[in-house]
Design a binder for these strands. Structure first.
Lengths: 357, 357
DNA sequence: GCGTCTGCTCGAATCGATTCGACCGAACCG
DNA sequence: CGGTTCGGTCGAATCGATTCGAGCAGACGC
């Protein structure tokens, strides 16, 4: 360990000690130019003696114009974002793909402040690209800033902006597909539990004003539209906090704790986690899933603590993250990849059945 | 948006356009020196016209010697680490505290490779400090590298190394406390489900060889020792994958699917998530918690999907993360904070009761 | 009216690397 | 044996800012 106050060795120190020029020493560490084996040996020796742990990444980055980091923007508190297993799966796939290039993942949240507080923070960070994988609906103030800096942006649908390369799914089509599946089973009284339509949305019935066809690429909106393509009159509740079990439980109680005649025979949740909450609420009320109530999710994540396999639209989060990572990699390599749409598949589980009677 | 190939504006460009020197322009953006209002105005105008989004963070960092990023090391796949709500709580608290300084959190995982692959990755990253909050037991190869670079390190107990500033809890004492609590309730046949003792541990009975008193600061080891202080003969199983519901379920089945006479009346789990798994396994086998089986956890996290409140040792993950963040901040400010021990408190829930009969 | 102080601005050095072109000696070719 | 090539090394420019000390003009005090 080097004592405090003592200057850390630099490439120059090492070069001097090895009796070579700085440029040669640099060549040794980067492995780029042709260097005689003996020379390389001497430099490495000098480095070891001085406790030189490699070229300063900052200086290297500055010269090369690569920051060595990809930003991952998270709306709100980290805790919230990381409760969503789908978001984590995406992140996991992204990390996996980014592993093959010398790049870290920089988490950028905004625990307490307003979204605007993100921009000044962002301004101080050296980033090669930014991924919006864990953001909610709505525009993001960071988009303008990043565009000005010329930093490529990626997302899984939100924010919806032309300057962002997207890995989308056909939200509306997928939602309609799972709704049709319930319809085929015979369900007619079907309700849905949505994620918030807007960042400002509060838990409760979805106000019509919040559903804009222009924002159909926002998952919550697109999925609601798809649901209504099949069940135009179904009740629609939204959670106040994105995809959470608590939100699902609350919405489930609200929808199910009513006279039997009014009670839906099936509930379409916009995420698996919400669906799990609905199942829990149903069982609390003494209902049996799927005999008394069918429940569908969306995402296709693992919920090891749920004693059911959800019927859901599998959108393969990890794969989505990997694709995102590939796009990032290609971009950093000088490419100009285009947005793509990823397929989703209906996966039948044990939470759906024909309605009773 | 600036077109490709066109040079992005720099401080120099802006200064020229505003008719001032680079140094003055710098002063305007950093807000440090005394600058005439009119001059500042001109510079800002020039910046706006050129679409200059602020000084290049890389150059700024290089000059100032701050990287603007704190690394967070994650063992294994991100997915694994982020399944553990306690780890997330710590991370959340850390992020909250780091919010007040211009610093990002850089996630560093090692999805597929061996632990050694972390070092080369690390070598390319500019970091002001590193936090080991999501690491498993055992030493970490990154410690040597980071020490050589003089980067301050922090952790919540593992790896246990003198060069790392720690926020510890008295693992052994806390585990003994909760065990004594069960003992007071009248339990005598008590088993425990531990997290892995070593990175290489596999699911199943804990081999005595893996329990070294020297590593009592490793949570899994310390907690096992505490358990044995009270129940020296209790069966001890460990999971193969850290703190996971699946691990808890598997261990729960193994411990409970036996003749009644051999079945423990209480199970001490080393984490809430594992405890939840044990509860699930018990209920699968037709047992009622807490009448037929008492279960205790460790951590004190929210599990909204579990229809019980676990009896647990609350170690306030978020607070722990905040403390960690404070230590990091103080260190970056030039301080030399020392390791501290955080108190934990027993929190009674609905999963414990006196044994039947 | 002269010296001093204050407020603002600037030039130049610096952070620690990378990289391009120049250079040099040795080997190789005809 | 002269000319060319090539492997290896080096010096200097560069990346884009920050910062320190110097300089300069105007205000102020006496």
């Amino acid at each position: 360990m080097v004592s405090r106050g003592q200057a850390r060795p630099t490439l120059r120190t090492v070069a001097e000690r090895a009796g070579v020029s700085v440029s040669t020493a640099s060549l040794v560490f980067s492995g780029k130019g042709p260097v005689a084996t003996a020379t390389a040996e001497r430099v490495k020796e000098a480095a070891a003696e001085l406790g030189f742990a490699g070229p300063n990444p900052l200086a290297s980055s500055l010269r090369q114009g690569r920051a060595g980091a990809v930003g991952v923007l998270v709306d709100g508190r980290l805790q919230m974002a990381f409760r969503d297993p789908f978001a984590i799966a995406v992140l996991d796939g992204l990390a996996e793909e980014l592993e093959s290039i010398p790049t870290g993942m920089l988490l950028i949240g905004q625990p307490s402040g307003s979204p605007e507080s993100t921009v000044p923070r962002l301004a101080g960070l050296a980033l090669d690209a930014v991924v919006f994988s864990l953001c909610g609906p709505g525009d993001h103030p960071a988009v303008e800033h990043l565009a000005a800096r010329g930093i490529p942006m990626f997302s899984t649908g939100v924010p919806a902006d032309r300057r962002i390369t997207q890995v989308r799914v056909d939200e509306r089509g997928a939602a309609a597909e799972i709704a049709r599946y319930l319809h085929r089973l015979g369900h007619r009284r079907v309700a849905t539990v949505a994620m918030p339509m807007l960042p400002s949305s509060v838990a409760g019935p979805v106000p019509e004003g919040e559903v804009s066809h222009r924002s159909a690429s926002v998952p919550s909106v697109g999925r609601l539209l798809g649901f209504r393509d099949v069940f135009p009159d179904g009740a629609a509740l939204q959670t106040g906090d994105g995809s959470s079990v608590e939100g699902g439980i609350a919405a489930g109680r609200a929808l199910l704790d009513v006279p039997v005649a009014e009670r839906p025979t099936a509930i379409v949740a916009q995420s698996d986690v919400i669906a799990a909450g609905v199942v829990i609420a149903a069982e609390e009320l003494g209902l049996t899933v799927p005999a008394d109530l069918s429940v569908t999710g969306f995402d296709g994540v693992d919920l090891p603590w749920l004693p059911h396999r959800l019927t859901t639209m599998d959108q393969q989060g990890r794969e989505k993250g990997r694709i995102l990572g590939t796009l990032v990699r290609r971009t950093l390599a000088g490419g100009r990849p285009r947005s793509i749409t990823q397929p989703v598949t209906l996966r039948e589980g044990t939470t759906t059945a024909p309605p009773r009677g």
